[in-house]
Amino acid sequence: MRRATAGAGDGSPLHEGRAQGTPIRSGAVDCGMTPLLALTAVLASGPIEVGQMVPDVTLTDMDGKAVRLSEFRGKKVILFTWASW
């Protein structure tokens, strides 16, 4: 998991981003991004918005078993996406 966050503060456009949502306190959206980073963040924005139902995506666990996001309904979920690269 170290790799998922390593370098997050290096200023790379690959690792900066945007925040959206009500839990965040004031000032969080204004994260001091440079124009390049801001552009990257806008380009990174997707079709889902805060307040929408999250699609029931099917993923795979470490045993190769299919896991649907809907299996976690009824619980607060912190979904973190990372990669080994």
């Binding site: 981003g17 945007r18 949502g21 009500t22 839990p23 963040a41 990174a44 929408q52 029931d56």
Partner: peptide, 10 residues
């Protein structure tokens, strides 16, 4: 199952 917050990148 409703999205309440997202941070894309970083």
């Amino acid at each position: 199952g409703v999205l309440q917050f997202m941070q894309v990148g970083g």
